[in-house]
Simulated assay, not measured.
Amino acid sequence: MKISELSQISQVSARSIRHYEQKGLLEADRLDNDYRHFDTSAIERVKMIQLYLKLGLTTDQIRALFKGEVSSPDDYEYCEEMLSIYQEKLSHVDGQIAALHELKRLLERQISLTIKKKNQVPV
């Protein structure tokens, strides 16, 4: 199928599909006219790429998973590499959450101080 068909079926832009190909996540044959030709398996592959991106994995991490012949996150019982990547990502997310909580605390403090100063200003 052409890239436009894959884009329409997968609901992913042709630009993203080209990017996935450039990053080594997706392969296409080239026709005589140099158009890309994707196998029907590319539909599922694009869906997996999208899922992994939503989980916050980088294209490098996804490529490593694909090279390790890991398919869909639901299609395996246990994979040490997947567990490590998921744990690393969760740790990163936990760090971001902690940083956001600290930022929230600081903003609330500054708002409180600003309101106090505003109320202390004589009219």
Rank of each mutant, 00 (worst) to 15 (best):
L6W: 05
S7K: 04
Q8L: 05
Q8T: 04
I9A: 02
V12Q: 01
S13K: 03
S13G: 10
I17E: 07
H19K: 00
Y20K: 00
E21M: 12
E21C: 07
G24I: 06
G24D: 06
A28N: 06
D29I: 10
L31D: 13
L31C: 08
N33Q: 09
D34N: 15
R36V: 13
T40P: 06
T40H: 09
S41K: 11
I43Q: 12
V46A: 04
M48P: 00
I49K: 00
Q50R: 14
Y52D: 05
Y52Q: 08
G56S: 05
G56H: 00
L57A: 08
T59V: 03
D60M: 11
Q61Y: 01
I62H: 02
F66E: 04
V70D: 02
S72P: 01
S72Q: 07
S72M: 04
P73M: 10
D74S: 15
D75L: 05
Y76E: 07
C79D: 15
E80Q: 14
M82V: 15
I85Q: 11
Q87D: 15
Q87G: 10
Q87L: 14
E88C: 08
K89A: 10
L90D: 09
G95C: 03
Q96V: 07
L103M: 09
K104A: 09
K104N: 07
R105C: 05
R109V: 05
R109K: 13
I111K: 11
I111C: 02
T114W: 03
T114G: 03
I115K: 14
K118H: 12
V121I: 14
P122D: 11
V123W: 12
V123D: 12
